[in-house]
Structures are given as structure tokens and as C-alpha cells.
């Protein structure tokens, strides 16, 4: 599964170049300390610890624990699965995801009429931030929403652990490795 290419382009155009946010990347890496509910794994392949932690918070907003069924993104360590997925991706896609994380952290609160960082907000405010991306008049913000949603939902529901709650009985063949 790849992040949609338009999203990558939009990330690059709209979040990294257009907003001059390239300069903020080091801040994200060293200065952003999102509220964390889980420890970052030691063997991250692509993301830094702060990026992973922010992604973990975003994934928890897209697929929270509880509700119609108990399992949520954090139960599957979805942020780490996304990190592993990104390890096989093209560099520009990885840069795009980093841009999207930045945008969610700093711009989505503004889009929802709040001050501060996404990761520092409470759960209801985070939902409002993501919802503001969804309904934004900006095509770039909507594409960021669509790209992160695709990443989170596709990889969450591709995981066997999510299927029981859906009543989906999974593949009929035994699990096999795709031959080279």
C-alpha cells in the first residue's frame, strides 16, 4: 500500500515548500514532545521517536479504542506498522508523510480554531482537528486527511487482529509467503 501520489505532491508543495515548513522539520524532530501513551519501540526504521509518537496519536484518533469494538490502533501498535511500511517506500513518500505529520501537529489546530499543537490537545479537540482537515476548503488539507486516513485504516484493517470484530473470517488459504 502506498500513500497516494497526489498526497505526496501536495505534502511537498503545500506543507513543505509552500508553507516554508521545511525549517520546522528539525523542530519536529527535537522540539516536539507529544503527549505519549506508549513508549516508542527501539527499532524504528524510518521515523524518529517524536514523529512516531505523533503518528501514534494521529492513528489513535483515526481508530480509537472502544466504541463498536474494543480494538484500536494502539492495540496493534499501528504507528510501528506504518513505520515498517514506510521503510519500503520511496524517499519522497517518506518526506511527504513527515510533511503531513508536521501539518497535523501545527496547522490542524488552527484549522479547527484552536491554538497549540495537535499532540497537546485532549481527545475531543484532536477529533475536531482531524475533522477540520476533512472538511477544509483547502484541497491540500483534505488530501492530507485522505492520505493519513488511507494509511491508518488500510493497515489497521489489513491486520488479522481486526477481523474478528467485523465478522470477517479471513483468507481461505493458509498464510503463505509471496514467492520471489
Amino acid at each position: 500500500m502506498q500513500l497516494p501520489e497526489v498526497t505526496r505532491r501536495s505534502f511537498l508543495r503545500g506543507t513543505l515548500r509552500g508553507a516554508g515548513a521545511v525549517a520546522l522539520v528539525p523542530m519536529l524532530a527535537v522540539g516536539c514532545a507529544p503527549e505519549r501513551t506508549a513508549a516508542a519501540p527501539r527499532d524504528l526504521r524510518v521515523l524518529g521517536v517524536a514523529e512516531w509518537s505523533l503518528l501514534d496519536t494521529i492513528a489513535d484518533t483515526f481508530v480509537p479504542r472502544g466504541g463498536a469494538f474494543a480494538l484500536g490502533a494502539r492495540d496493534l501498535d499501528l504507528a510501528t506498522r506504518i513505520d515498517a511500511y514506510l521503510a519500503n517506500e520511496r524517499p519522497e513518500i517518506v518526506r511527504g508523510v513527515r510533511g503531513a505529520l508536521l501539518l497535523v501537529e501545527w496547522a490542524s489546530p488552527l484549522a479547527s480554531g484552536r491554538l497549540g499543537r495537535f499532540s497537546a490537545l485532549d481527545v475531543d479537540a484532536r477529533i475536531a482537528c482531524i475533522d477540520a482537515l476533512r472538511t477544509s476548503r483547502s484541497a491540500t488539507l483534505r488530501e492530507v486527511f485522505a492520505g493519513l486516513k488511507t494509511l491508518c485504516l488500510f493497515l489497521f484493517y489489513a491486520a488479522d487482529e481486526s477481523w474478528t470484530a467485523l465478522g470477517y473470517d479471513g483468507p481461505l488459504v493458509g498464510r503463505r509467503v509471496v514467492s520471489p
Binding site: I130, K149, F154, L166
Partner: peptide
Amino acid sequence: VAQLASNLGGFGADHKALMA
């Protein structure tokens, strides 16, 4: 299932309710 999930509208608890 994974393709369907990313095509259904919404996110969060509402989306989980749909998937259920």
C-alpha cells in the same frame, strides 16, 4: 476489507461503527 475500510467515509468511532 482493508480496501473497503479506506473507501468508506468518516473516521474514528463512527467509522468503527460502520465497519462493525
